[in-house]
Simulated scan of single mutants.
Amino acid sequence: MYKRILLKLSGEALAAGKGFGIDAVFIHKVAAEIAAVHSLGCEIGIVVGGGNFFRGVAQQAIDMDRVAADHMGMLSTVINAIALQDAIEKLDIICRVMSAIEMHEIAEPYIRRRAIRHLEKGRIVIFAAGTGNPFFSTDTAASLRAMEIKADILLKATSVDGIYTADPKTTPEATKLPDITYNDILRLNLRVMDQAAVSLCKDNNMPMMVFSMKEQGNIVRVVKGEKLGSLVTA
Rank of each mutant, 00 (worst) to 15 (best):
A142V: 07
A157Y: 15
I163V: 15
G162D: 07
L119S: 08
N133E: 13
A142I: 07
H104G: 05
G132Q: 08
I101W: 09
A146H: 01
K169P: 00
R114F: 01
D139Q: 12
A142G: 05
P109L: 12
F136E: 11
D179V: 01
T175Y: 00
Y164N: 15
D167T: 02
E105Y: 13
R117L: 11
E148T: 01
K150H: 10
A141F: 01
H104F: 09
R117K: 14
A146I: 04
A151T: 01
V125W: 14
I101T: 06
S99F: 11
D152C: 12
M103V: 05
M98W: 02
I126P: 13
Y110W: 06
K150E: 13
R117V: 02
P178E: 12
M98E: 10
A129E: 06
E108R: 08
D184S: 07
I106V: 15
E105C: 06
E105G: 02
A174S: 12
P134C: 04
G132P: 02
T165Q: 09
P168N: 14
L186C: 05
P134R: 11
A166E: 13
I111P: 06
K121Q: 15
Y182S: 13
N189W: 00
Y110S: 02
L154S: 01
A166T: 09
F135E: 08
T131I: 06
I126G: 13
A142N: 03
R145Y: 00
R112M: 11
